[in-house]
Amino acid sequence: MNEARFIQLLGAYGAELSRWPETERGGAEALLEVASHRLKDIWESERVFDHLLALETDTVPHSAFSARVVASVPARRPVVKIARPWAPWRAPQWAAGGAVAASLALGFAVGYAAEPVPAGSEFEQMMALGGPGAGAMFLTAVNDTGGN
């Protein structure tokens, strides 16, 4: 590092080398060790200025304010643990397939059974007769139409 660069960095970061870019500190240290009186005087003057700036210290926040900030932490939502006695057991993959197939089969069966019978059909008329002679009438009708 040469003097010009040293003075440039001194003018930006001040005399405290820990604030300087890490890559420049070694060079600055080496230069300071062998620096001329003029350069050391410049450095010393900047150090005094650093001291002046350092008088503007942080103030400790009021405890009530600190407490208010801590109190602003949102309340943790309670985690409701649902008892799941089956949790350790995992259904095998084929069971899932079987369940789907069973659901389809059941749906088909229920749908088929619930299919509405058209109103006014021959079957309904026959049943409406309801009397004890209904069976005999049915047989007679069968004999009349197809029995020959």
Partner: peptide, 14 residues
Amino acid sequence: MTTSAPCVQQALGK
């Protein structure tokens, strides 16, 4: 400058 030596050392981390 007589005061600079320890200050320089401090800046150098010594």
